[in-house]
Amino acid sequence: MHLVVARIGRAHGIRGEVTVEVRTDEPEQRLAPGAVLATDPASTGPLTIETGRVHSGRLLLRFAGVHDRTGAEALRNTLLIADVDPEETPEDPDEYYDHQLVDLDVVLTDGTPVGRITEISHLPSQDLFIVERPDGDEVMIPFVEEIVTTIDLGEQRIVVDPPPGLLDDRAEIASARDAETGEPRDDAGASGQGPAKDGA
């Protein structure tokens, strides 16, 4: 299993260091000196991490064979990829690898289908689920505890309780579900406030 663990940013200084956008919850393991990483594009790798340090809140890496600014700039926007055992799980039970979450079904707290996770987007501020809706459209759901209430790997589903407006067509989804069940929508659903948490 291949896991994108970082994206190389701009060069730092003149001795081959680069800033990196970390895309793993385990940088001390995946981005440690001595780690050998595949790359995308593949033509720039594999790369072996020679040194790593934190400067002004950003991780700086230097790779074996890259010791000047020109070489560092040539690596900009390269993705760093680690090989991960598919059976391996993070030490923290509340953390997940991307491959554990991709393809899981996403539903609201009342069971209304939202879609299927196709990608995890790792931004500096937070992670996002990229969810493909049944009609082919995509919606982005922040991976935060206030919204993602349950992750059930056994049932292969994720339960979310999004705030009003996050899912623009949430009312339409609820309407379609009610049409299937024959149950009328309540005032909360009609006003776009969404269902209350069910404690899942």
Rank of each mutant, 00 (worst) to 15 (best):
A35G: 08
I151H: 03
A72E: 12
A196M: 13
E145W: 04
D137F: 07
D98I: 03
G189Q: 09
V66Q: 10
G194S: 10
V159F: 03
P113V: 06
H12I: 08
G136R: 05
Q100S: 08
A64H: 13
S56L: 15
L166M: 08
V106I: 12
Y96H: 07
D168Q: 11
S56K: 15
I8N: 09
G34S: 03
I117M: 00
E17G: 02
S43T: 11
S125R: 09
A82C: 04
L166Y: 00
D137P: 01
V20Y: 07
P93W: 05
G111P: 00
E180K: 11
D25K: 07
G115Q: 09
A38L: 02
E73I: 06
D94H: 15
F63G: 12
H67V: 04
R53Y: 15
A32V: 14
D169S: 09
G154T: 11
G13I: 13
T70N: 01
A42P: 00
F143E: 04
V139Q: 06
F143Y: 15
E88H: 12
A200L: 04
V107P: 02
V106F: 05
A174Y: 01
R62Y: 11
S56Q: 14
P184L: 03
D83P: 03
D103S: 12
V102I: 15
Q126R: 13
L80T: 05
D68P: 00
H2Y: 12
V4K: 14
I151D: 05
Q29C: 13
V102W: 03
Y97H: 14
G45P: 07
E95S: 15
I14Y: 08
L61H: 05
E26D: 11
T51E: 15
H12V: 14
G192I: 14
P33E: 02
P90W: 04
R116T: 13
L31S: 02
L37G: 10
A35D: 04
L123D: 08
R30I: 10
R23H: 10
R185F: 00
E26V: 01
K197S: 14
L60A: 08
I130G: 10
D135F: 10
H99F: 15
G45I: 12
R116S: 07
D161S: 14
L61Q: 06
I117R: 03
G52N: 06
H67C: 01
V114S: 06
D198L: 13
R15P: 06
E180Y: 02
G9N: 06
I49E: 00
M1Q: 10
D135V: 07
V54T: 13
P41L: 02
R170I: 12
V4Y: 05
T19K: 12
Y96S: 03
T48Q: 14
D103Y: 11
G111F: 00
H12Q: 14
Y96V: 02
G165F: 01
R58F: 14
T89I: 14
G9F: 10
S56H: 15
E180L: 15
